[in-house]
């Protein structure tokens, strides 16, 4: 894996301050990325240290007997649910709960010539969603910038832009400072998943009008 989330994105992942969509994609990337796992683990140690060294509360106590009652009630009423992942799937484990284990099972709809789209709601209590795109070889996404952050995780195939080439497992981490014109560089279709916290802003007025209707 050659393309990773920005260091600041990984630190925010450790602190738990990324949106559900962003953190889902970061988890999907680091499943198979030791480089990012190490960064996140250092972030987790940092968070643990902040929690442990809270001087004001060192001498406070909590009621252990009350907790034991709660634990006993829970043990009598429920079973632990183990999460079952297919680790041989081309779908990262953390996306499997949303799209299953087979990329061919995704229900695509027309987005633009050569581009198909599928949106998956990942929270039933907010408007949080992931956008999957299936793009034909050599197809370009028109030049655009971003009004917020955008993470793109490649699931199959590859694309490239001025910042480099992104293959399966790689993540492109863009913010308002990025303008790019990604083009699919693989011989097969490129399937990627996008999380945004602001709309794309296209250089072309027509593309912008279209984006305001179909919105990624």
């Amino acid at each position: 894996m050659k393309q990773h989330p920005d260091l600041s994105t990984l630190m925010s992942y450790s602190s738990g301050t990324l949106s559900l969509a962003f953190s889902t994609l970061v988890t999907s990337h680091i499943e198979n990325c030791d480089h990012c796992k190490e960064i996140v683990q250092i972030g987790n140690e940092l968070g643990a240290s902040m929690m442990e060294n809270d001087i004001e509360n060192k001498d406070k106590t909590e009621d252990f007997n009350e907790f034991l009652n709660k634990l006993n009630n829970k043990n009598n009423n429920s079973e632990i649910k183990e999460i079952d992942f297919d680790l041989n799937s081309e779908v990262p484990a953390s996306l499997q709960r949303y799209i299953g284990t087979d990329l061919d099972e995704i229900q695509w709809s027309f987005f633009a010539p050569g581009i198909q789209k599928s949106q998956v709601k990942i929270s039933d209590k907010s408007n949080c969603h992931l956008t999957f795109l299936k793009i034909k070889p050599n197809k370009k996404i028109p030049e655009h910038g971003h009004k917020g952050g955008e993470l793109t995780l490649v699931l199959k195939g590859a694309f490239e832009d001025a910042n480099g080439t992104y293959a399966a497992g790689d993540i492109a981490d863009h913010d308002t400072s990025t303008h790019h014109e990604p083009v699919v560089s693989s011989k097969e279709d490129c399937i990627c998943v996008i999380a945004t916290d602001g709309p794309m802003v296209f250089k072309s007025m027509i593309a912008n009008m279209y984006q305001s209707i179909v919105r990624i």
Partner: peptide, 12 residues
Amino acid sequence: LRKKSSQPYTDI
């Protein structure tokens, strides 16, 4: 607190 979601967060 933040996600208000019935889907549990899948951590690494």
